[in-house]
Design a protein around this nucleic acid. Sequence first.
DNA 1: TTTATCATGTAGCCGAGGCTACGTTTTATC
DNA 2: GATAAAACGTAGCCTCGGCTACATGATAAA
Lengths: 156, 156
Amino acid sequence: MKNPAQATEKPRKLGATSAAAVRRRTREEHAQETAQDYVELIADLIAATGEARVIDLARRLGVTHVTVARTIQRLQRDGLVTSLPYRSIFLTASGRKLSEESRTRHEIVVEFLESLGVPALVAQSDAEGIEHHVSRETLRAFTEHLRKEKKRPKRK
Amino acid sequence: MKNPAQATEKPRKLGATSAAAVRRRTREEHAQETAQDYVELIADLIAATGEARVIDLARRLGVTHVTVARTIQRLQRDGLVTSLPYRSIFLTASGRKLSEESRTRHEIVVEFLESLGVPALVAQSDAEGIEHHVSRETLRAFTEHLRKEKKRPKRK
DNA sequence: TTTATCATGTAGCCGAGGCTACGTTTTATC
DNA sequence: GATAAAACGTAGCCTCGGCTACATGATAAA
């Protein structure tokens, strides 16, 4: 057992290097998750109520306003939102762009899960976690599947 | 716009309370992700090479041995693994149980994605992130879909 | 057997994302 | 307009999961 990293009995298992790369990708995605969740929520709130306040975000996210405030600072630092003390939060152009991409992706995932027979609430909940890990290829496979389902509905 | 948290124009959108609960669930899942990844990898290494060493885990995960060592301490604290200084790592009974559950889930997700036409490597990569967010219901929907596919393969 | 190399451990730093406690600003209400 | 309530900000603490630098144990090679 000199070099376990190169052990490859099963064909569908990744080598050490690529496996590490995969995990790294997963980690990097994670860094974007919060940003996407926030801008999506902010867009929602603005659409629904005209403005996005820290307290609303906190309630929707289930965290304290402190956590939200600090995160908003980061998003501002990263050029996704603008905000002034004691005022509501706005999306920048790139924030809006990200929010739209996230929303689309989210909707596709939810619709896809529902098309498999997953209950709406569960689909909504699972999509929350899944959507951040769906590659372009997989997303395409999802939409493709949906397209087919619509042509031939209820093939049970 | 008195209470934005209660705004509910679109029917398939969750209210503030349940939305918060969903996000919280997503967060809690995240706490388990590392543990699952580690025990699964440890089981892999033991199966493939007879033992699991810190350095092997580090290489496979693409992190330094320091990160792995500290994580192993946490897993030990949580009763998933046992380890002694300068010795290899072992799974406890519950660690083994978790590793088996994770492996099964992982395999189902990969197989499911591949059945949708997602390339093997991408499926492997995406599954890494997705598997931690698949509820029992969704997993059941996946296996159900696979079952059908096997009956009637290549319905393109 | 000594020595080099590799694996582990430990100290200490960082950022993200949680929190409580407490002070300040806005807003609502009387 | 004063006052109470709600929203927001700031300080400071925690855990997790990264890292570098350095010390020590185990192992292989000379």
